[in-house]
Design a binder for these strands. Structure first.
Lengths: 226, 226
DNA sequence: GCAAAAGTGTTAGGAGTACACCCATGC
DNA sequence: GCATGGGTGTACTCCTAACACTTTTGC
């Protein structure tokens, strides 16, 4: 069906992802540098316009792969951004997702058809971005803080298991607050959310630590009170 | 900008609302009967296609008003439905919201430009609906159950105040479980979420009960554990 | 030996749950 | 008086928060 009514004409959907990592104790988000207009040469979130023949996550995964080379990533719906003037070109509504990956395990493309660079930015060093992407990131960070409290999304950082002090640091840097070691351990173990693999890992200058993994199929566990 | 690439051509945005009420102890949702194709003569959720010159909630409020006559309603973003084939006409992504109103205080339009009827349906009597609206309602009901636990959205039912046993009934029918009277009262009062207006209300055959109101500007209070 | 980090236990307070009794109203 | 429903108190349990000591490791 061809749309005649100008009230509806030329609308589109952006699917956007705030892709986070935690690198050396710093929370970072992946940004790409745009090669084309609008917002040519500005930094932006990963994502783009949805095709007609794709479901939302499918389109977002295609965009992420095309612009960064990242293939495997868990995505969670975060919010919707639909202000009428958010795109200077035509009416676009953005559906935003969040994801988290281990930046050391992926090679990010820095030159693609539509991007001239890609970089991890610490949250306090994010430049002025294309579209309303600064606003999207703000919301995504809030959502990330909530989601690590009641889902197992951090498992993406530790496919091979983690030690409890290790993952505690991740919680602390994302939540921006310190947690008591003893209570953290008790809580995490009591939740029936993780299990000991039996292996131990040994960092230089430290005592051996046990390796744990998240169990499969866990969702919506309240890990910590706000 | 005119879109040439058929991959993006003719996309649109649906803004949809699951409007709930609680009537005589039954949770109901407002449905409208469509006058036009597609899905002519089928029941559907309130909502429709977003215009280019409207923000999301603005467009949804217009749709709600046009199709039901309802003016004042609090809306909360619920979910996004974007399967590529969810509309038979063209590619439409639906942004769904929930709201709750007192059905006794509004007069619902039963005949408009686009609707031939409007009715409140108990949740277990919902017919097969247009588009993916059954799926949207399922998700909306889940979301409603969550949201009454940590927001003050039920205040919409009681603009003039409520008694504690009264609102407890609302919680019970929405959550589909009984709550202990004494603990309910304690919890609600301890939350610092409501205040006594000083008035009392008297139902026939009952003891006088104190009237309470929700405080202003309250969000994200955990009212009850799941 | 010493510093750094892993691992464990105990206790007090608060929130949640379960439960029993009294009071006001209308018949 | 009696049925119905409003209003209150108490004890038990569990979770959380605060906090101290021991062990392993590399230097």
């Amino acid at each position: 069906m061809e749309i005649k009514n100008p009230k509806y004409k030329n609308q589109g959907i952006h699917v956007m992802a705030s892709i986070f990592t935690v690198d050396k104790g710093i929370v970072k988000v992946l940004l790409i540098k745009r090669k084309n207009n609008p917002f040519k040469d500005m930094w932006a979130l990963t994502g783009g316009a949805l095709y007609n023949d794709e479901d939302l996550e499918e389109g977002l995964r295609r965009e992420i792969f095309e612009k960064t080379g990242i293939k495997d990533i868990d995505l969670r719906l975060c919010d919707v951004f639909g202000k009428k003037d958010r795109s200077p070109v035509m009416r676009m509504v953005a559906i935003s997702y969040i994801g988290i990956i281990d930046s050391n395990k992926v090679k990010i493309l820095t030159d693609t058809l539509k991007t001239s660079n890609a970089e991890w930015f610490a949250l306090d060093e994010i430049p002025s971005l294309a579209y309303d992407h600064n606003e999207i990131i703000d919301k995504s960070v809030k959502y990330l803080k909530e989601k690590i409290l009641n889902t197992d999304m951090l498992k993406a950082l530790y496919p091979n298991g983690f030690t409890i002090p290790e993952i505690q640091k991740i919680y602390e840097v994302i939540l921006e607050k310190e947690l008591d070691r003893r209570n953290f351990r008790k809580k995490l173990l009591n939740l029936n959310l993780i299990y000991a693999t039996g292996e131990e890992i040994n960092f230089v200058g430290r005592k051996k630590a046990k390796l744990y993994k998240f169990k499969e199929g866990i969702e919506n566990k309240d890990i910590f009170k706000k």
